[in-house]
Write a protein that binds this DNA or RNA. Structure first.
Lengths: 228, 228
DNA sequence: ATCTCTGGTGATCGCTCGATAAACTGAGCC
DNA sequence: GGCTCAGTTTATCGAGCGATCACCAGAGAT
């Protein structure tokens, strides 16, 4: 229809952002793109998402790899902002309440398509930052949880948890993590009530920890007796 | 040195395989390549692994995508060859023994770098075959396990497990699965004794199932009491 | 010995990728 | 107004990608 008269060049969109704004817009949109396409996603597709041309990227990042590193940093540091030290270590509250609340807010932070996909893609690349994150989960979350559990059960506080304890905590943690993978990566139907899933997982973890603590110094435990 | 005289062209390697052999060699090496590089791995790199030239691939597969589909098929069907029906459903043996053995052979089948990486890469692509596999784990493994557990506990056998039961089983299964991810994807240190990890996970799963079964018809359960 | 059939190669096409260099443009300052 | 400088675009490069086609070569049948 009135297409013939060029109405002031419709692509006079919103160009000319400040350098800082443009730069962080690149990182944000790159996170979205790479979450969907993997890190093989193209710089042209990224530019299209911003409504700019592809070479503009190189005004803000020396190479695509530098952009990717920034995406890593942003995504991996995101869940750390919730401040779990005080959540886990506040001994004025029952440990079960602390654990429940911690896992609710922690999974609120990481259970979304964007975070989980970036995490898995970068994990498959075997990057240092992924090793660092896994080590941090071990030291800052699982070890802390075990320490609080030991304290709560009246056991001696040891500097490092035993390998068996740690594995127990990992299986528990992994079970919860896998809930997010099933929901946001596999897009499989899951129990909608995340809080109840956490509550149930906590029940069996804490019961398992108690059982392990009871057979105190034993390295090897007998299997539990099953009804029937 | 004696480089000047062409000594019968050293690349007279081992060419000229039978069509079937060459085809399956393509699939095998493609599985290795894609496991490491992702499905973005190049056809030239693949040919190099076989010691042939790149166009030869297209004598055996119409396109790279068809090759990839064959890789899927091979990888996804691999763990099914262990025949878990008889392992899980043989009621002449104690359920705990059955579960222990099943998870040992199942994880023997899938806990390796090749399988896990292909599985995760294809999972990230959101393919139908991945949905199919997850559904199969649910129907053929978890549902069966829950049915056997119910039978063992003397509970009424219901056609489908409750959502809460299923979630319990998923968290347990996911916890074990994540052990493989930690070991072969993250390459993080894990408890070396896989059988003990399974045994411990089984302990807490079965204890959790019993607890859930005790509070029979209740949809919502009270959290367990913690010492202290 | 020659023919034939098939596994395998060499050359190349069209496309997309990350990256570079030069030209353009518009808001703020004098 | 005209200058300046930073944000943006246009044009393009070289490399690598999947895919195609004509050709080659060697084992087995005749």
């Amino acid at each position: 229809m009135n297409r013939k008269t060029p109405v002031k060049r419709a692509r006079a969109k919103q160009k000319r952002l400040s350098a800082d704004d443009r730069r962080s817009e690149f990182v944000t949109k790159a996170t979205e793109l790479f979450a969907e396409e993997g890190f093989g996603g193209g710089t042209r597709a990224l530019a299209r998402k911003l409504g700019v041309t592809q070479p503009l990227l190189y005004r803000y990042f020396p190479s695509k790899d530098d952009l990717i590193k920034e995406v890593y940093r942003k995504v991996y540091l995101e869940p750390l902002e919730i401040g779990w030290e005080k959540l886990l270590s506040d001994r004025s509250r029952p440990i079960r309440v602390r654990l429940q609340e911690f896992y609710e807010v922690y999974t609120d932070a990481i259970f979304n398509r964007r975070w989980l996909r970036i995490y898995l893609y970068s994990g498959l690349k075997g990057l240092d930052i992924n090793r660092w994150y896994v080590g941090m989960v071990k030291d800052k979350i699982l070890t802390r949880i075990l320490r609080e559990c030991r304290h709560d059960a009246g056991l001696a506080t040891q500097s490092r948890p035993s390998a068996a304890e740690l594995e127990l905590a990992w299986v528990f943690h992994g079970g919860i993590f896998y809930y997010g993978v099933r929901k946001y990566i596999y897009e499989a139907p899951v129990l909608d009530d995340k809080a109840q899933m956490i509550s149930d997982a906590l029940d069996i973890f804490l019961a398992g920890f108690e059982r392990m603590a009871e057979s105190a110094t034993d390295r090897r435990r007998a299997p539990i007796k099953i009804a029937g």
